[in-house]
Write a protein that binds this DNA or RNA. Structure first.
Length: 478
DNA sequence: TGTTTCGGACTATCAATCTA
DNA sequence: AGATTGATAGTCCGAAACAT
């Protein structure tokens, strides 16, 4: 797929440069007319052309950008059906076309896009939660279709056509490729790795499935095409920061929560990104436009002004923000503490071998019985969709001592920050070589999976507050 | 409408510990 | 020695408060 020139350029840049040029530095325009982000910059002009096309479309941001498809993206009616009828559900919430859509300039302003970060229920989850990497693993054990798929930890979001004879082709992407004009003029081609199918695409896809024996149907309903993704690979190719930012700018109020939280990343709140949320899984699976959000990048060392203001800094000195607010004189790197040494930490929890996992997890709770794929990577979390009759409810509940019931003494589900949660089932995005297939380490304090001789989980109070005012609130004391 | 404040979610780093 | 773990130290999102 071809990218708009500004993105092509940024793709070749160092990630740091990408961040520096990222339009996500909201409301902080470039001061240099030669800068690619400057409104008068030639590259920016192309972008603005696309935007004019967008804004001239009477509040339908995507109908024009869809090229041959007349279906606006803010309608899920064109999406393939799914067993949970999620598309209709989504439509019933807030994906209807907004007759009072804001102007293009208003859409550009993220702060005006989303009066609430909570978004609209399921849609909010769709954006923040669906980025949960675990969802890419979703329901793998219960899906024979996925059996031959391979985990790709190389950092490249490739899926392996040879792995699954069922999904050697993405019909909708294929259709896209047949419209170079669409790719050229349409930002959608860049922002939507898999554009939503129109009726022709659906029909074509269904016909293909019929020819293939309809193995991936559920009561005759074709499953979502994103099933063709491998278990552990990202569902769509990753976007750059810049792509992502502009993507959400284009989305505007349609995806309000997404626009308001462009960077809230894979390890979001337990409720929105709970790794085992089948509801979100099906949102993801049924949404060909699902976009995996990139991890938030941060500078190694913010300047003193940005640090004080808790605002995004960049590597330049003076940084963009300081230039904007006339603080260039005082824009210097903040000092960093030296990490303490010689701090004893006690024995680490040990991860058991795959051969031991089956008996350990299955004997404790049915929820975790699918935690490890048969033959899959040890300790990787998969979606226990089939574990409970009401998976949605069960996974929407926080794991408190009360909700855990009799298991509370043996299982400790610590979602979120690995730093703040020394508990089991922690998420370690930084452990992975690629940002799009993070690892879930499964640990079961009290179970046979991990040994915690010092009962390290017990002293973990969880997130206890911000770091403001000195000291690290995340510090756990044994 | 723009700016500042700040809670807390999140990332990055790296020493301690584990394992082959 | 290299891999893994998890504590530490930081960044910065985004909502609310405040200023103009």
């Amino acid at each position: 797929m071809s990218l708009p020139p500004q993105f092509q350029q940024q793709d070749q840049q160092d990630p740091k440069d990408q961040q520096r040029l990222s339009p996500l530095v909201k409301n902080e325009p470039s001061f240099d007319p030669q800068h690619p982000q400057h409104p008068q910059h030639p590259q920016q002009y192309q972008s603005s052309q696309a935007f004019q096309q967008l804004s001239a479309n009477n509040g339908q941001p995507y109908s024009g950008l869809q090229g041959s498809s007349s279906t606006p993206i803010n309608s899920f009616s064109a999406l393939p059906a799914n067993p949970y009828n999620l598309n209709n559900h989504l439509m019933g919430l807030s994906m209807r076309q907004n007759p009072t859509a804001p102007s293009s300039s208003a859409r550009m302003n993220q702060s005006s896009l989303a009066p609430t970060s909570q978004g609209s229920g399921i849609l909010s989850g769709n954006v923040s939660g669906s980025t949960t990497p675990a969802l890419a693993y979703a329901s793998a054990p219960s899906s024979p279709i996925m059996n031959n798929m391979q985990y790709n930890s190389s950092g490249n979001s490739q899926y392996h056509p040879s792995s699954s004879s069922l999904y050697q082709q993405q019909p909708f992407q294929q259709h896209n490729q047949q419209h170079p004009q669409q790719q050229h003029s349409s930002l959608t081609a860049s922002f939507y790795p898999t554009s939503p199918p129109n009726q022709h695409q659906q029909l074509q896809y269904q016909q293909q499935q019929q020819q293939q024996g309809s193995l991936n149907t559920f009561n005759g309903v074709p499953s979502a095409p994103l099933r063709q993704q491998p278990q552990y690979a990202p569902l769509v190719p990753p976007l750059t920061d810049a792509q992502y930012a502009q993507y959400h700018q284009l989305l505007g109020s349609t995806f309000s929560s997404a626009a308001s939280t462009p960077y809230h990343s894979n390890q979001s709140t337990p409720y929105s990104s709970m790794p085992t949320s089948p509801t979100l899984e099906h949102q993801q699976l049924s949404d060909p436009n699902f976009v995996q959000k990139p991890k938030r990048r941060q500078v190694k060392n913010a300047c003193v002004n940005c640090q004080k203001a808790c605002k995004k800094c960049d590597e330049g000195r003076p940084c963009t923000r300081c230039r904007k607010y006339g603080l260039a004189d005082t824009c210097v790197d903040s000092t960093r503490k030296v990490r303490k040494k010689g701090v004893k930490r006690g024995p680490y929890k040990r991860r058991v071998q795959p051969s031991q996992l089956g008996s350990a997890s299955a004997s404790t709770t049915p929820v975790m019985s699918h935690a490890v794929l048969p033959g899959g990577p040890a300790g990787y979390m998969s979606e226990p969709v089939t574990a409970l009759n009401s998976p949605t409810q069960s996974h929407m509940l926080p794991f408190t001592s009360s909700t855990m019931g009799p298991l509370s003494g043996t299982l400790d589900f610590g979602y979120g920050n690995s730093a703040t949660s020394s508990s089991s089932y922690s998420f370690h995005p930084q452990r992975m070589d690629n940002n799009y297939a993070p690892a879930y380490t499964t640990s079961y304090s009290g179970s046979s999976l991990y040994s915690t001789p010092y009962n390290m989980n017990d002293y973990n109070g969880g997130p206890s507050g911000s770091n403001h005012g000195g000291g690290n609130s995340n510090t756990n004391q044994p």
